[in-house]
């Protein structure tokens, strides 16, 4: 049995972050639906830490994790849409922007939740005390609106995965689990991993930043 050559695409932190989001976003919805707002607020703070970590990892992480590596200009995106431009290792020029949109939506959603309050003033985000009841209620309604935008973007994300799988015969889920995919002709240099100390720095900053926001601010 011959083993096909495989190439590393995603480092472990990127994959763990991705699957943590896959678990936590539905969990956020469910805890709201069953009115376990204590859990909802706790999980929201964990999500804040994860998203902060991913933003920092986008600056100092492995080559495919970095914003500088996958956030491309409009011309590159247009070229990709026309089917030109070589295969990308990591996010393609269009997918890169969907990552940015997803992170911004998550961050907005978590930010709104920090200040939100329920109509009975029984459950409130950790920063709700900084705003009036009326403002906190408006932010809670925005929190609901952003949720629907998030669901819409997730639907686009899943549709794109299906499109690549069915039309372009490119399996994207496996690599997000194993971290590797089949090597393709025209692959540019393989992923450059980041050393462990960078991960520790990013994780430390994310945890510290989250605690600073929810405890001391």
């Amino acid at each position: 049995m011959s083993r096909e050559p495989r190439v590393r695409v995603w480092d472990l932190p990127v994959r763990l972050f991705h699957w943590a989001i896959v678990l936590l976003v539905p969990a956020m919805w469910a805890t709201h639906e069953i009115e376990r707002m204590d859990l909802h607020i706790l999980l929201g703070q964990i999500l804040l830490g994860l998203v902060l970590f991913r933003m920092i990892w986008g600056l100092i992480g492995s080559s495919t994790a970095r914003f500088a590596g996958f956030v491309r200009g409009p011309r590159t995106v247009a070229r990709y849409l026309r089917g030109r431009g070589g295969p990308a290792l990591g996010h393609n020029p269009l997918g890169g922007w969907s990552v940015v949109a997803m992170l911004l939506l998550l961050l907005t959603q978590i930010g709104l939740g920090l200040f939100a309050i329920d109509e009975d003033a029984l459950h409130e985000g950790p920063l709700s005390y900084l705003v009036s009841y009326e403002t906190a209620r408006i932010l809670a309604h925005r929190h609901e609106t952003i949720f629907y935008l998030l669901v819409a973007l997730i639907a686009v994300h899943i549709a794109a995965i299906l499109y690549y799988r069915l039309v372009r015969h490119d399996k994207l889920v496996g690599p997000m689990i194993t971290g590797t995919r089949k090597a393709a002709a025209g692959d540019d240099a393989a992923m450059t991993p980041a050393p462990l100390w960078r991960f520790l720095v990013a994780a430390g900053l994310a945890v510290g930043g989250t605690l600073a926001i929810v405890r001391w601010l």
Partner: peptide
């Protein structure tokens, strides 16, 4: 009721 909720929040704050 909104005034009551706002009062509860004000006290909790």
């Amino acid at each position: 009721y909104k005034q009551m909720a706002a009062a509860v929040k004000g006290i909790n704050d």
